[in-house]
Simulated scan of single mutants.
Amino acid sequence: MAEAAADAGRAPNLRLFFALWPDAATRAGLHARARALHSECGGRAMRRDTIHLTLAFLGETPVRQVERLRAVAAGVQGEGFALDLDRVGSWHRNRILWTGPSMVPPALAALAQDLEGRLRADGCALEARAFSPHVTLVRNAHAAPREAQLAPLRWTVGSFVLVASELSAAGAHYRTIGRWPLKRRG
């Protein structure tokens, strides 16, 4: 009974992260790559509507902090860029297959660093590991992919988003709760 009263008194939380969200054409190309990797290595290909590149994972966050996070994001200075996804790889420990760039564009590194710095200055607890830009394509893979030269999949990035991950029996559903444009290169 006391446990239920304590739960009722807690503010509701959202599972949040900042990300790059692909446009429809890029998402289709990434999903095709996910299906090919799934055919080769097994596991569970990511659904087309969930494919993204995480910039900063916040985890369980009180709803009351969303407006503050929007203000932090609005202060981020960034420039749009092209991201060439020309590698695939795997993390054996958690059986993830991913795609990423062999060369990280300076504008992506600067965006991630600016966002992380502002979030930390605002008191957000972030993971200590270094930023490693990748797009998860397959979970629970049975094998690592063969090494092969990939034709780059070019993603023109013009904004970043704040996303809420909502879990259900059908899996994760992502809801965009804020979007911020990046300056056009010129």
Rank of each mutant, 00 (worst) to 15 (best):
G158W: 04
T136E: 02
G59T: 01
P181Q: 13
G171I: 02
P105L: 10
L126T: 08
L119F: 08
R154E: 01
A112P: 01
N94T: 09
V163N: 06
W98I: 07
A11I: 04
A143S: 11
L16V: 00
R184Q: 05
R27T: 09
A56K: 02
M46I: 00
V63C: 07
R95H: 15
G117I: 00
H52Y: 13
A172W: 11
F131K: 05
D84M: 08
N13D: 13
L108Q: 05
L108N: 01
G80N: 05
I177W: 12
E40D: 14
T26W: 12
P105R: 14
P105A: 04
T54Q: 08
V63G: 06
H173M: 10
A74N: 10
L58H: 14
S159M: 01
A121L: 07
L137Q: 11
G59L: 04
L85T: 00
R70T: 01
V157E: 03
P106W: 07
A169P: 07
H142G: 14
D7Y: 13
A151S: 05
E166I: 11
R44F: 01
P105M: 13
A73V: 03
L126G: 08
L150H: 09
R44H: 12
A34C: 04
A28P: 05
A24R: 11
R146V: 09
S90Q: 12
L126S: 11
A112K: 02
A74Q: 15
G29Q: 08
A24N: 02
A4S: 14
K183A: 12
G29R: 14
V72D: 08
C41Y: 05
R184Y: 00
P62H: 10
W98P: 06
E116D: 14
R87H: 09
L150E: 10
L97K: 09
T136M: 03
N140W: 03
A121T: 00
D86Y: 12
R139P: 15
L83A: 04
A121S: 10
L126Q: 12
L37I: 09
A164W: 09
G9Y: 02
V138M: 03
G78C: 08
W91G: 07
G78I: 02
G42V: 06
S165P: 10
A6F: 14
A141P: 13
R44Y: 03
E60R: 13
R184C: 00
W180D: 03
V157N: 03
R129D: 11
R48Q: 14
A71H: 12
E60T: 10
P12H: 04
R47Y: 12
R68W: 08
L97G: 11
A151R: 05
S159N: 09
